[in-house]
């Protein structure tokens, strides 16, 4: 009898235990409602907690809440809600803020400015190279270098900086060894839309003669306004085999994110002159957040500044000499920025 009681008690405890651990809400917490109002509040508060550029952009996010919370209701359609969120996020004017809604009816919204496409054509440049080596797909190389016909001017192009730092350590060393005999170089950063800031640091270090601070970054570390991590200092770290002869760096509005932190670093090298258009103006990393309704939004959680503490978010980096290609010129076979770069180097 005693054994039976013991066994029954044990079995009851076991069943209760199983019931307890099977209860998701008790063991894992509650999920927010997926309705428009709840999703709006989640989106607003996620930016309020994590967005790193309110101070830089001088934007009062509470005012934005006051304005938009009155426009949201649970009867809105998904498209109406997407339009409202897009209008709210456009106040940030941040090229690293975007939002996507899944299929069916996929939509994407980008908060930042848009610039005309077609201001740069790699194929146009390839026609004027006498020697060309590339890595990656032939029609869309990751790295391309060569020499302009009838000159001793080298050309180096990177599609992006998204590979691991070791990739650039190897390929830039190889490229610069092949271009060591040239007198000058055009570095084309007009295709670099983004990538890894560590890769940008390595590539720029191959043009550096001395260790120099070029960037300070910090990230939100709590929901408290203005609560950032300590500054992380980014320095050029000269490499053996560095190219220290004159370089013209070409930039345009397509040079974004890690392409811009690369440009920040190259600006510190005295042998580098920058020609072209302003860069895009979106520096910080932009991790993604999921909304309760399944949409995904990207935002800048960092605050990236140059070595003096100046932020160029939403502005972009101004070249030493502004030469802006138009799509019409490029489609007619003229790259004025490149022509200017070559003339600067030939004048040396």
């Amino acid at each position: 009898m005693k054994q039976l009681i013991k066994t029954s008690l044990f079995a009851s405890l076991f069943v209760c235990g199983l019931g307890l651990v099977s209860c998701n809400e008790l063991m894992l917490g509650e999920e927010p409602s997926q309705g428009p109002v709840s999703t709006f509040e989640y989106l607003w508060s996620t930016f309020d907690d994590h967005y790193g550029l309110f101070e830089v952009k001088q934007l009062d996010w509470d005012e934005v809440h006051a304005e938009f919370s009155t426009k949201v209701n649970d009867q809105m359609s998904a498209d109406e809600l997407f339009d409202l969120f897009s209008e709210m996020l456009s106040r940030l004017n941040d090229g690293h803020v975007w939002m996507v809604k899944p299929n069916p009816g996929f939509r994407r919204f980008d908060s930042g400015p848009s610039f005309p496409d077609g201001t740069f054509d790699l194929d146009l440049i390839r026609e004027s190279l006498s020697e060309e080596t590339s890595f990656g797909p032939a029609d869309n190389p990751l790295v391309l270098f060569g020499k302009f016909k009838n000159t001793n001017i080298g050309y180096l192009y990177l599609d992006h900086l998204g590979q691991a730092p070791g990739f650039y350590e190897d390929h830039i060393r190889t490229a610069l060894a092949a271009l060591a005999g040239t007198d000058e170089l055009v570095f084309d950063a007009r295709g670099i839309e983004g990538g890894d800031d560590r890769s940008a640091q390595i590539v720029a270090s191959y043009f550096a003669e001395e260790r120099k601070l070029y960037m300070k970054t910090r990230f939100k570390q709590s929901a408290n306004p203005g609560d950032f991590s300590d500054w992380i200092l980014w320095q050029l770290a000269p490499r053996s085999g560095a190219y220290t002869k004159p370089v013209v760096l070409l930039t345009d509005r397509g040079t974004g994110s890690a392409g811009e932190t690369f440009t920040l670093a190259m600006r510190q090298n005295e042998n580098v002159e920058i020609v072209g258009d302003f860069t895009f103006g979106a520096f910080s990393d932009n991790p993604k957040w999921e909304l309760p309704n399944g949409w995904i939004v990207a935002m800048s959680t960092g605050d990236f500044r140059d070595q003096s503490g100046i932020s160029y978010e939403g502005i972009g980096l101004e070249p030493d000499e502004v030469v802006i290609n138009t799509p019409e010129e490029v489609s007619n076979g003229t790259d004025r920025a490149l022509i200017r770069a070559l003339s600067i180097l030939l004048e040396n």
């Binding site: 994590h50 790193g52 560590r198 640091q201 990230f219 709590s222 929901a223 770290a237």
Partner: peptide, 12 residues
């Protein structure tokens, strides 16, 4: 993952 959801340090 940190609060910012970003892990990025130079030369690391």
């Amino acid at each position: 993952m940190p609060f910012s959801n970003v892990v990025s340090q130079p030369e690391t």
